[in-house]
């Protein structure tokens, strides 16, 4: 059974989005996504300062069996990336919603936040797969 925290927003392409108290927005991939990929062995993150649009491929997560793009769920500028993933890509398998976060946006376009789905809708979307 997949772990889908109720306090996060999601995309149908398996990214999760957390609105932080300081207004920044943290992004990762879901528990379901890491389970489908299997053990991660390499993560490529975007450069800090990248300006991204929703749906833009901006990171790559590679397991033993496959490489997958991670898409920007919102519009905004990257202010921080998770450097720990370079040495420990398995953090995404172990703690996809915590230490396995991938990147953080500073200010984002709030209209694009409104396009995201909630945990119930995400659960429904993966049950349809």
């Amino acid at each position: 059974m997949s772990d889908i925290p109720g306090d996060l927003k999601y995309t149908r392409s398996h990214e999760w989005v957390r609105l932080e108290e300081d207004g920044s927005v943290t992004i990762g991939i879901t528990h379901h996504a890491q389970g489908s990929l299997g053990e991660l062995v390499y993560v490529e993150v975007p450069d800090v300062g990248s300006e991204l649009s929703p749906g833009e491929a901006c990171a790559v997560v590679e397991s033993v069996k496959a490489a997958s793009d991670v898409y920007a769920p919102v519009e905004g500028v990257i202010v921080e990336v998770n450097d720990a993933l370079a040495d420990q890509p398995e953090l995404i398998n172990e703690q996809p919603y915590d230490d396995g976060w991938i990147m953080r946006f500073g200010e984002v376009n709030h209209d694009t936040l409104a396009e995201l789905i909630d945990s119930d809708a995400y659960l429904a979307s993966i049950e349809d797969e």
């Binding site: 392409s13 398996h14 990214e15 991939i29 996504a33 491929a57 790559v60 997560v61 069996k65 496959a66 490489a67 997958s68 793009d69 991670v70 898409y71």
Partner: peptide, 11 residues
């Protein structure tokens, strides 16, 4: 997230 490349036998 979307698949980019994979081992060829997972069709």
């Amino acid at each position: 997230m979307g698949q980019r490349a994979q081992s060829s036998f997972f069709v």
